[in-house]
Design a protein around this nucleic acid. Structure first.
Lengths: 338, 338
DNA sequence: TTGTACGCGTTATCAA
DNA sequence: TTGATAACGCGTACAA
């Protein structure tokens, strides 16, 4: 299985490797007859130039690394679906890495991607959403940033300026809250997320402020954190339902938690939205698949991915780009709240 | 942004590059004092060896390419989630490529991955499920297979032996059919998929044979193909409901179609499963998220991914592996059929 | 224990 | 229009 090289092609065509290289990249004129001869031999052997060697001299790999926390949370596949399309148009290839929200795996991938000479990096989840991120982990990213451009999606590196693309999650939460309030809800709960993630805290803050701006009382027993999973949603809703004084509506950290919550309520014989209204976040396919369909907030996930790639591409070309790109969320009203 | 090399490290440490290389890979004894000195300098500069150059001499990249058709169909993220875990344990890194079910994109990625010297390839979707796959496309894969090991998941290359991992979709369909028949259904429809994909035909055949084995009549107006999407499921169910003589149950090509079908039925005021039973396929998270929860067949998606990686790893090590690995599907009975 | 020098498969520079 | 040949950054015999 000896892999065939430009030398083999050159020898068989009675030319030098330089000439072969020229027809490969057409980087200089080659006499048509020899070009044809060489192309025939290349075709005959199905010769494929070694991208490793090529990149070694070019100093270009055409690769963009993407770190994401969880392939089974639909939000992320949607983001990198959009990113992949954008990358392809620009001639880049994505190197997708599932970190499973594990910091040490993040570090491993970060290193591995750098060593593999990716030209840019997109970072989602994990440490860039951590409320208290160890300095070492932050520094790791900062150091890499000195060598290759990085774009953070929905996150930040406390104390360090970064290129970032994000949805205005604060506004998104406000939109949902206002929608519920407009529909007459006066007691609204908050379900899911963890106090360790910045996105949770941002939403929580929007939740609290919107409550007080509307002279509605904040009750801590109506705010229940946990994680971002369906099962968490179910558990938290069950807890909520045992309360003597329960809210008439809940907003959830994401669609998964919302669905879990809905299921728990339904299994208790409740009706949605009559007995309790439920809202999610992200507008994943799950939201429209549900019955009743879930009211949620769209983050424009594909666009998030596209933007990140676009910015990265500009950065790679040494163009000036503004540090922060904020996408406006969109309220998607469906059956679960009306 | 001059990238730093082993030469820089060597110079600063007053040693040769060979010695630096030795501490990097500890491939030969190095005096502790000089090792420490070198390591300090490496750490100081955050030196990361260039994997391109390294792989060029090693002839090992540690990469496994993965082609999948659609990141927004939960089944695939589940598969490569399992694959990623397995790969990591074995020291491989997955190179995930979203082909969007587009044959020319498949070809591009196939080439790109080969040139990038992946050590193995996992192929899902697209041409390996095509009923009539153009010879050129088949040949393309066959040619690559001569150079690097390939594992097909739930597909095949007509006329060419391949390493394959698959779920017994025929059996899976039988399980669902038998379940419905056992519950008293005598008129059962089939929704979704396309006549161009082998998996659809395999399921269709199981459907027909199970019908006749149970002396149930096959009615072609109860079999409606389309594609694999939720919206298709809705459309097909609507068509079915306009029929004067409609089935009491439908099996669907996958969970997405099933959910679309359920939604359409529900929006017509029907109850599931009382008015019509609906079953899906794949057991994606969607199935258990739905209300009512969806009866479906588990393909053990993560295990499919794990197995593929495991086989590839053996193949890379030149070990003998059996060509075909069949995973037994599992019927998951939920509310939508009882 | 350490250093020299060559090879990995390309591209690019400079002559011819 | 073509051909030597020097990089690219690293690993590794072979020698010392």
């Amino acid at each position: 299985m000896e892999s065939i090289t430009v030398y083999d092609i050159a020898r068989e065509a009675n030319v030098s490797v330089a000439t072969v290289s020229r027809v490969l990249n057409d980087t200089a004129p080659v006499r048509t007859s020899t070009r044809l001869k060489i192309m025939a031999i290349i075709e005959k052997h199905k010769f494929q130039p070694n991208a490793l060697a090529r990149s070694l001299v070019n100093k270009k790999t055409g690769m963009i690394g993407v770190l994401f926390p969880d392939s089974t949370n639909m939000f992320f596949p949607e983001v990198f679906g959009g990113a992949e399309r954008a990358a392809q148009k620009l001639g880049y290839t994505l190197f997708l890495c599932n970190t499973f929200s594990n910091c040490s795996r993040e570090s491993e991938y970060l290193n591995s991607l750098c060593e593999r000479q990716v030209e840019g990096l997109i970072f989602m989840g994990g440490r860039i959403n951590a409320q208290h991120c160890p300095d070492a982990l932050v520094q790791e990213v900062v150091d890499i940033q000195k060598k290759i451009p990085i774009v953070l999606i929905n996150g930040s590196l406390p104390g360090h300026p970064c290129y970032r693309v994000k949805t205005d999650e604060y506004l998104g939460t406000q939109l949902i809250m206002q929608h519920l309030i407009d529909r007459g809800h006066r007691s609204i709960g908050f379900l899911g997320g963890t106090a360790e993630t910045t996105t949770t805290l941002e939403k929580l803050q929007a939740y609290k402020r919107t409550l007080s701006a509307n002279n509605l009382s904040y009750r801590k027993e109506w705010v229940r954190l946990g994680d971002f999973s369906m099962s968490c949603g179910s558990t938290l809703m069950q807890q909520l339902l045992t309360l003597p004084n329960r809210p008439t509506a809940v907003i959830c950290i994401n669609d998964y938690v919302a669905i879990g919550a809905m299921k728990a309520a339904i299994s208790q014989g409740m009706h949605i939205p009559e007995d309790i209204a439920v809202a999610g976040f992200d507008d994943t396919q799950l939201a429209s698949a549900m019955n009743p369909e879930l009211t949620t907030v769209s983050q424009h996930s594909e666009q998030l991915g596209r933007q990140a790639v676009s910015i990265l591409s500009q950065l790679i070309q040494k163009e000036k780009v503004k540090k922060l790109t904020v996408l406006e969320p969109k309220l998607i009203v469906r059956q679960s709240t009306q």
